[in-house]
Simulated assay, not measured.
Amino acid sequence: MAIENFFTTRFTIKGLEDIEETDKEEFGEESNIYYCYFRVFSGELESFFDGGTREVYQIWFDKDIELKQGMVVVIDSVEYQVSSVKNNDTMVGRNMSGNKHKKAIIYKVV
């Protein structure tokens, strides 16, 4: 079965954009609508900066989508920070040429 059949959750991406006439950046408007497979990564709350906690999730999505660490993913109006992105072209020595995709670890602070 093609992995694309599991990409049923809609998401958008917010990237950093320069603020004119400054040396600062801000997150821009949401862009195109994409689809992913969205799931809880560990189910545990993790400690995060100065006593805060975060929930960690994983998304799988099309290999052609430009998503990078530091961007923001919006799913059902909830913003998630992108922690890391990995290309998945092979899996445990098996050629996954029909199922090439990317995985991202995302989180929200709670």
Rank of each mutant, 00 (worst) to 15 (best):
K14A: 06
K68V: 08
M1T: 09
F6L: 09
F6C: 11
K100V: 05
T8R: 04
S31F: 05
R39L: 02
F27M: 04
N87P: 02
V110A: 07
R10G: 08
G98R: 05
E17N: 15
L45D: 08
S83P: 04
K102D: 00
L67A: 01
E25F: 13
S31L: 02
N32G: 00
V56N: 09
V40Q: 11
V74L: 00
S47N: 11
M96L: 12
D76E: 15
I75F: 00
M96T: 10
Y80P: 06
I13P: 00
E21N: 15
N95R: 04
R54G: 09
V56M: 13
D18I: 12
N87R: 13
N32P: 00
A2E: 07
K108C: 09
E29V: 06
C36W: 01
G93F: 12
K102M: 04
C36H: 01
Y35T: 02
F27I: 11
V73N: 01
Y107Q: 13
V82Y: 00
K102S: 01
K24L: 15
G93K: 10
F38I: 01
T90A: 08
N88T: 07
R10K: 10
N32F: 05
T22Y: 14
E30F: 02
G43E: 06
M71K: 08
D18S: 14
F48L: 10
V73G: 03
T9K: 03
K100R: 03
I19E: 15
V82H: 00
V40E: 09
K14V: 05
Y80S: 15
Y35G: 00
H101G: 03
L45Q: 10
R54A: 12
V78Q: 11
S31W: 02
S31H: 07
M96K: 14
K24G: 13
E66C: 03
G93Y: 12
F6G: 03
E21Y: 14
I75C: 03
E44M: 09
G93P: 13
G43A: 05
G98A: 08
D64P: 00
G98D: 02
R54V: 07
K68M: 06
I75N: 01
S83F: 08
I13G: 02
M1I: 10
R94T: 13
G43D: 04
L67Y: 01
E4C: 08
I65Q: 01
S47C: 11
L16C: 03
G98S: 04
I65K: 02
V82W: 00
E66I: 12
G28F: 11
G70F: 05
D64G: 01
E44C: 06
E20I: 13
V82T: 01
L67I: 02
E29T: 07
G52N: 15
V73I: 05
G70P: 00
Y80D: 03
K100F: 04
E29I: 14
F49C: 13
E30P: 02
F61M: 06
D18Q: 13
